[in-house]
Design a protein around this nucleic acid. Structure first.
Lengths: 329, 329
DNA sequence: GTGAAAGCGCTAACAA
DNA sequence: TTGTTAGCGCTTTCAC
């Protein structure tokens, strides 16, 4: 008999609902005998508490929202994976909503989260988002928001980010170390703060050695990266190394490498910033600086949990980077 | 002022809660004047209905569960993407839970879905699941379940699947058409029904031409596929074509192809069953038979919606396959 | 040790 | 046209 309620159990046993409730929670007030009977009946009736009712009563759902531009993206997947894994331990579930990189959808989604009274929201801003006042409503509703990856500039918000600066620097250092002289550096959409940070740090590191020639290019997707690479590798003076800011760009570059039969690393070296999956599908495996969505997820959870137990100030936290040697540089 | 309730509005306006409720719903009974006042106050108070309360009252949440082995998987992503897109139109949200291919977690997750009174659940069984009686509890709770991809054999359940048989046949036909004589066919985990179906159909098609030599191999992941390919491509009689049952296997094969500098399609042809992303990251692009997670998602939604409005019998539905020409065969 | 009652926020049948 | 009442399932204070 499914959908048993406290009431039903109470009726059968001819005791009150509150006693049943307490018995099921193993409350000290209740006699062993009563507990026994209640537990048993609950068992046979397959009683399962109605979370909706509990939530209404307690004014708190055990659900976190996660908003990402798109779920079909390796990096966000890793993030979500980590978060799901982590919050489950505390009995939470996830409500995942995609913004599709659309600020309007983003705002709609926030509304859904508010109406569902989620306990908190993890947000990666859409590419197009410029105004973030919509998030103030979450404050009013007392729903903590932890931004990740694409975060607002405003210090008034909690943010966890990749150590973009460190990562870009590490990659740049590696290139210099290998004495590369003619580098093609492909970055993503310049609108994104993530691109800006990586670009700036990379450029800064490159200043150390003025004898190095670096060409900066920008690709919005894999295909554009492919096209850019095509152009450069048909020059008589081929790049002797390529830096890829992201997996998307790496994938585009590698298609070009395959097409033009470029030997890696003898003809050209390659280094990327990556979550780690794509570098391993090529031969030789690509040397990369890890920017882990998984670790970012864990960090975001930690921060969220702090927010829940009365946070103090907002913070910006970073996930450290890690150099992973492949055979491509 | 956030967290306004009907009660607050009612108090301010000195009218009853039910009038407020009706006014907000634009109920015909309510006078224009009252509606006006209520609407305005609701606006300024930033009233937003409490979904939890509504759910409790209506005994129906606007949430679907989606259970997949892992979210870090292209195919399931596409599926989830399609489902999210589709159900959003009807005002539903998704609660995604991963089973991690663990039957115990699977059962725990079902419990979470039941307790949260989701409106329905989309389930892809874990690799390890053998007994499915846990799903009967969902029936008792009157929560419709639509299985997808990895589905139970039992006809008593609603299922949407890829047309594995068709897809494998199409690939086999293409190989025969191209006069391939020495084919390496790599399949996945033989425990999975999906593997069985694809394997059986492929073998059946191959029977048409007994002059063709086919080697059947099985790989549980990309690395194993790579190793198998390594072995075959170091034989003096190299395969003149390779069939990959899945993206995972294709990725492994391609790593080997890169390592051994095998020319595609001149030295060996390649054909795969795939969702479509991975075939396009290689050069030449891989010829594949599309097994679309996205379309599967759409179909699953259709079926779910039917279930919600009182279904009749359970069905097994299939997403048709599509041959996509790359340059690899 | 147990029960009665109130209330979380909302809806809807029934009254007025 | 509006209000009253009851109740969704649960928890918890207060009384006995």
């Amino acid at each position: 008999m499914a959908n048993a309620t406290l009431k039903k159990i109470a009726q059968v046993l001819e005791i009150s609902v509150s006693t049943v409730s307490r018995a099921l929670k193993d409350h000290p007030d209740i006699s062993a005998g009563t507990k026994q009977k209640v537990m048993e009946l609950a068992e046979t009736l397959e009683y399962e508490p109605n979370a909706v009712a509990v939530n209404l009563r307690s004014k708190s759902t055990k659900v976190f929202g996660v908003m990402i531009p798109s779920i079909t993206n390796n990096f966000y997947d890793s993030f979500v994976n980590a978060v799901e894994e982590e919050v489950k331990k505390a009995g939470y579930s996830l409500m995942i909503l995609q913004s599709g990189d659309d600020p309007v959808t983003e705002i709609d989604n926030l509304k859904i989260y508010r109406q569902n009274r989620v306990s908190g929201v993890f947000v990666c801003l859409s590419k197009e988002t410029t105004k973030i006042d919509a998030f103030d409503k979450m404050k009013d509703a007392e729903i903590p928001v932890v931004f990740f990856d694409k975060v607002p500039d405003d210090n008034a918000y909690d943010r966890v980010c990749l150590a973009d600066k460190d990562a870009a620097e590490m990659a740049a250092e590696a290139l210099l170390q290998k004495q590369k002289k003619n580098i093609l550096a492909i970055f993503g959409n310049t609108q994104l703060s993530i691109t800006k940070r990586r670009l700036e740090a990379f450029k800064e590191s490159m200043k150390q050695n003025t004898a190095v020639n670096v060409s900066y290019e920008f690709a919005g997707n894999s295909e554009e990266a492919d096209n850019i690479a095509q152009r450069y590798f048909q020059l008589k003076q081929m790049p002797d190394a390529v830096f890829c800011m992201s997996d998307e760009i790496l994938v585009g570059l590698m298609k070009c490498v395959q097409q033009l039969h470029i030997k890696v690393p003898s003809q050209t070296g390659i280094i990327a910033l990556s979550d780690g999956y794509f570098p391993k599908i090529y031969y030789p495996e690509i040397t990369y600086v890890e920017t882990s969505g998984y670790r970012l997820g864990k960090l975001a959870c930690e921060r969220m949990m702090e927010c829940l137990k009365g946070k103090e100030e907002t913070t910006e936290l970073f996930v450290s980077s890690r150099f992973v040697e492949g055979g491509s540089l």
